[in-house]
Design a protein around this nucleic acid. Structure first.
Lengths: 350, 350
DNA sequence: CTGAAAGCGCTAACAT
DNA sequence: ATGTTAGCGCTTTCAG
């Protein structure tokens, strides 16, 4: 609360200059921590700026430097179809953590249809509204990476890593899905489960495809484990549908693994409807952990993921790319399993 | 996909002008739908602009007009403490719906501590980063409205309406909390409940205070209904703590109402732990509805709210204020009750 | 190391 | 109805 703060905004660099008794250019240098000005002047300028409550005019700076100092994210409405709400908020938190550090703004844009996304990118690029974008929920044959390359707009990917997909020069940050899948199946196998079914997310998400491959490989490695999968749209209702389907087969699985926590919780209800008990009749594991996994009866065994960290590193990778760095591909450690009451050895051992 | 789109961005108004064979000013007029240019030229300009893939440079426009064409929201991290995740995403969706219509960008900013919010507002104002802000989760004696007035930054409130609070000239959009509270207690009373306890949100949220008053008044009106309340931090764990507390009293309530869906779901677990049955031993009602209320056993009776609409109208009110309009105070209809299996008449009728 | 001046792309007041 | 021009506030060359 220094003396001058009652001025309250809209102070120009010119006023700071006269206040400090130097030129506008000197102020600019001083404020941006550049050479070309003595330490003494710098100190005086900074003092004057603080005293007057100066803050840079975003538009003027952008216009001069041709940088928006902002990054954008386009989401498809409704969010719940693409990401679970809690995953989304954690992701947002991670992105912001990194952007705040760099004093870069986050511009959010929701579109009604996936196809509109690229138009937004084009507009953003043309208008220099953002310097780059962060992508999530890549789909099979997702047109966005190539579009970004064609447009010339930098980007970075949360998930949807390098394995089987042309990233078009974008950076990516993935979790170790192979390790996570091995962790889950290995854990169940150690409990003697030999028939595991998975209630997965939407088949067209790359995210899901990664897990498809990871689970299949992990099951293969174990050798004596039957593994099947049903895809859903991530909603509770669809998860229940899939769960019912799997449990209604002749020779139902002894363990069900879910691609998110909501569907896992919903499975407990299905069990109840079908007169089955968890974990007596079948075990349940959720890929993501959340409060939800701890308010059910029984509590749900879950793989703890780090979406906020993943998002934070993605934002960092984008900022590096904006600074001229090469694309990077980070893989975070596999999730850690928290065993709870929803898992135990199957009734009939194989 | 017109012919010229391969140009791909960064087209200036000057290029459009030469392409259309007119002056820069004429292009500006034509593009912004203003008088001062014939329909014929306008058409030609628009065609040229589309052909070249022109989009306005955000910074240049802002600098010229002294408007950012953006509104901001500052949230306190972690979001889950202040708003339930699903409420937050719905709110975001509503805000964006309105802003997109007006081609206004949304800038999101997360801070670690509530106190930092006003600094961000000040910086945003000084730098013309946003034209206005949307506030949520007003607290008791919240300093933000007055700060905005002092700073000179327009704003609008999601919730925290006009009743008992100096809004400092801000617009607000509220749900009819009084009506909702009456709806819930009336419904329970009609089932013959005469002893209802509430597991509420954080006491320092104005939001919660509104409900406190609404429930108290509704209980008073009914006359023969005992009502008590315990405040929580909205988390599942704290909700369970409060639920346990209430059910452990001598003469426990026959119905519990919850300020959010997560705590309501968590209460079912508490019931199980305590050897109680829902709705046999006590009924459960949630203020917000969500998928969660439909995957529990029993399903949870809930008040359906319209957070997206509330947020949308708030954004609209803000845009109106930016256009010079007077502050407005909208009150949305009370929530509608969806009765499910978690409620029924109490065992011992009063 | 410092000061003057040009220019980023647009809008809006001016002159034509 | 159209074209000319002067800024918006900042950064950044270029002389001093």
């Amino acid at each position: 609360m220094s003396a001058g703060e009652q001025h309250g905004g809209r102070v120009t660099i010119r006023q700071v200059a006269v206040h400090a008794g130097v030129s506008e250019a000197a102020v600019s240098y001083a404020l941006n921590g550049r050479p070309g000005v003595s330490e003494q002047t710098r100190a005086r300028v900074l003092a004057a700026a603080r005293e007057l409550g100066w803050a840079p005019n975003i538009a003027a700076r952008s216009l001069g430097t041709a940088r928006a100092n902002a990054v954008g994210m386009v989401l498809v409405r409704p969010p719940r179809v693409m990401v679970v709400d809690s995953f989304f908020t954690q992701m947002l938190s991670g992105v912001e953590a990194e952007l705040n550090r760099a004093e870069v703004a986050l511009v959010l844009h929701l579109v009604d249809a996936f196809e509109q996304t690229i138009d937004v990118y084009r507009r953003w690029y043309a208008g220099r509204a953002v310097d780059g974008v962060i992508l999530t929920d890549l789909r099979h044959d997702d047109p966005r990476p190539a579009a970004l390359r064609d447009i010339g707009l930098p980007g970075a990917l949360i998930g949807g890593g390098p394995d089987d997909f042309d990233l078009c020069g974008l950076s990516s940050v993935d979790a170790d899905v192979a390790g996570t899948a091995r962790g889950i199946l290995g854990y169940l196998r150690a409990l003697r489960h030999r028939d595991v079914a998975r209630v997965a997310g939407p088949a067209d998400l790359l995210h899901t495809a990664q897990r498809d491959a990871a689970y299949a490989a992990a099951a293969d490695d174990l050798g004596d484990l039957r593994y099947r999968v049903v895809h859903t749209n991530y909603s509770a209702a669809d998860g229940m549908r899939a769960t019912r389907e799997l449990l209604s087969t002749a020779g139902p699985p002894t363990a069900l693994v879910f691609d998110n926590d909501v569907m896992a919780a919903a499975a407990l209800r299905v069990a109840h409807e079908m007169g089955l008990a968890v974990p007596a009749d079948f075990s349940v594991v959720a890929w993501d952990d959340s409060d939800l996994c701890q308010i059910t009866v029984p509590e749900i065994t879950a793989m703890v993921q780090t979406p906020a960290l993943q998002a934070e590193l993605t934002a960092r990778a984008l900022l590096r790319a904006l600074a001229g760095g090469e694309p990077t591909h980070v893989v975070l450690p596999a999730g850690t399993l928290t065993a709870r009451g929803s898992t135990r050895p199957p009734k009939r051992l194989g």
